[in-house]
Nucleic acid binder design. Structure first.
Lengths: 259, 259
DNA sequence: CCCAATTTGTTCGTATGTATC
DNA sequence: AGATACATACGAACAAATTGG
């Protein structure tokens, strides 16, 4: 770890000390190639190394913790530990970016329409029977038409979960994250607004039909068919949303997402 | 703002106090519909409201600051202010998610190949002449073949900047962010690894040719042509990268990105 | 079950830095 | 320049959580 940075008057600190300490620790992690689970020096040692007060060091650790990069534990054997940023945390942080941005449902669907067909094409013929079975099991959760608004809501979300599960099977971490992010975002909207109301059974049934056919195409290893089905599915769903109010709900994503 | 949360023994605090304070402030922002620039209560008042020590409150503010949600200013009229999360901050935070994930260049290109053609199609015929001119000006930055590795590097990045600028013109905030994120990620890799070396002038020249044709298609309002050109462009670029080592560099994205 | 050691978590008082008027 | 209002930083003491004997 680098020695304590003695501040000179000629070099005014743009950032606060905790921020600079946090940066230094990050750099230190990179240099040493620290991995998740590795322990950072404890508060006491950091205080000594950086020659700063306890509160300052603690704020620095909080910064890293807020970004999901470390976790702290009390007690013997405790300390500050490198932590892999969780998908939930990453999604929540990215969600903050859009909080003031009036992201619309149409924009989310534009992304899904670009991504999911390619996901389907990439997965065709690559999935194990158990994986395909699991997808079909998900579909079965909304086989029969909903009778209440509450059930409609549940089925709506369950249907989004299908896409999240499909994405989970991708080998592309970026693709996986983004499709799950969008599905989760739409679930949030489904809950906080009444996206399931009015019901619109017919269009929703067609959505389920697309998913059934998609699994068949995936099983058959027909990439082109999978792509076409998901394109049509996304187009239909987008149209379904067309009547909905366009502005997305103002809400910070919770740390515990739906999926 | 809610009154100070008196902790009961039946309700054990999973999260630390600063974390809970940060959550409470976020919720408070949502409830009151606070906007960027709005001032939160100062430290003194927060201490009183939450009945917690100064350091605790400060750590809470640091958490929000690390997430990019607030900024603080000292002096009279200073305090804690709501802040719209910047694109740079969001990109850096999302980048952290992939730090331990061994994201490959191929995965990034898979995403670009899905997104950028749709971006092009959506922008065809929608851009003002000045915007199109600006794109052409960017291309002119790497018109002549590079003579040194340094120049090759610069041109490589400039070429990525073209895509970032194109994305900037999208009305879809999500699309805008993601394309710029991937372009920025590739720029990082270009710099930290020697992606421009060996040169491979021929393939790179073809890339520039695609961009020239793209601008023409955008000007003509030919969405299908724009989509096709970008598909071919991405395929070519992906192939160009095929020989490259697959693992992406281990590095935290700096707060100040290339673009 | 309790006790002791270890490590983070929290408090409070004081002092310093910084921007505004 | 000086007064004011605010965040920033320090340090010492104490509290809480966890582990092991």
């Amino acid at each position: 770890m680098p020695p304590a940075t003695t501040r000179s008057k000629a070099d005014p600190p743009r950032r606060s000390r905790p921020q600079r300490v946090a940066e230094a620790i990050k750099q230190w992690v990179v240099e040493r190639g620290l991995r998740p689970g590795d322990r950072l020096p404890g508060e006491a040692e950091l205080i000594e190394r950086f020659a700063m007060a306890k509160s300052t060091i603690r704020e620095a650790v909080r910064i890293l913790e807020a970004q999901g990069l470390v976790k702290t534990r009390t007690g013997p054997g405790g300390g500050v530990f490198i932590h892999e940023v969780s998908e939930e945390r990453a999604a929540a942080l990215l969600g903050n970016y859009f909080y003031f941005k009036t992201l619309t449902i149409g924009e989310i669907y534009e992304l899904r329409r670009a991504l999911e067909p390619e996901l389907g094409a990439a997965l065709a013929g690559k999935l194990a029977p158990e994986q395909l079975d699991r997808l079909e099991a998900t579909i079965r959760n909304y086989e029969s038409p909903a009778r209440t608004a509450e059930e409609e809501r549940r089925q709506h979300i369950e249907s989004l979960r299908f896409h999240a599960r499909l994405a989970e099977m991708s080998e592309n971490a970026l693709m996986r994250f983004l499709i799950r992010f969008t599905a989760n975002m739409l679930s949030e909207i489904t809950i906080t607004r009444g996206l399931y109301d009015p019901p619109n059974h017919e269009l929703w049934a067609r959505g389920r039909d697309y998913q059934v056919r998609l699994v068949a195409a995936l099983r058959a290893g027909d990439a082109d068919a999978a792509r076409d089905i998901l394109r049509a599915h996304m187009d239909t769903a987008r149209r379904l949303m067309e009547g909905q109010e366009d502005r997305v709900v103002r809400r910070f994503l919770p740390e515990t997402p739906i999926f």
